[in-house]
């Protein structure tokens, strides 16, 4: 399936992905209104992870075997068998945040104001997810994993870098 991947060697931690994610998930879809009028503000579903000069944004991986879905107490989290997209049904979510603890990427954001778990939905209303479309230096890509050269992006087993 198509996922959002980041290139840590290109990311400069500008945070625009977070801004545009928030806007894309706001009522108005307007950057000024989303920040100034809509309270409480929508949390961004993508978070820039940073340490010194190293940075990369991270959002839901839409895992093949999603811990969050299997940990969900209410049935609000589901993985679509066709598209593979992991979604949270806000109606069913009670904000217990078991999914927040279950996700090894901490890609599920606890929205304490609304008492709902929120996460990347790959922007179903847009052709390209807002974070990817608005990244100024193409540190984010939306792909099924195979780059034009045929190599896997962000290959499996990303564990310790040492």
């Amino acid at each position: 399936m198509k996922r959002v991947y980041s290139k840590e060697e290109v990311c400069i931690a500008c945070g625009l992905c977070q801004v545009h994610c928030l806007v894309a998930h706001s009522e108005s879809k307007d950057i000024i209104k989303a920040y100034k009028k809509e309270t409480p503000r929508q949390p961004s579903r993508i978070k820039v992870q940073q340490k010194g000069s190293l940075s990369f944004p991270l959002s839901c991986r839409h895992c093949e075997e999603p811990w969050c879905v299997y940990s969900c107490l209410t049935g609000a989290l589901q993985k679509d068998p066709e598209s593979g997209i992991v979604t949270v049904d806000a109606e069913k979510c009670v904000g217990c945040f078991t999914c927040v603890v279950a996700c090894p990427c901490s890609a599920i954001i606890p929205d304490f104001h609304r008492k709902k778990a929120v996460k990347c939905d790959l922007c179903p209303h847009l052709e390209t997810p807002a974070c990817v479309a608005n990244c100024p230096n193409q540190a984010l890509i939306f792909t099924d994993g195979a780059t034009p050269g045929g190599t896997k992006v962000a290959a499996e087993g990303a564990v310790a870098r040492r």
Binding site: S6, R61, C63, E64, V153, A154, G157, A158, V159
Partner: peptide, 9 residues
């Protein structure tokens, strides 16, 4: 941890 965390996906 490097980006992506594909290991867990």
């Amino acid at each position: 941890m490097t980006c992506g965390r594909e290991g867990s996906a």
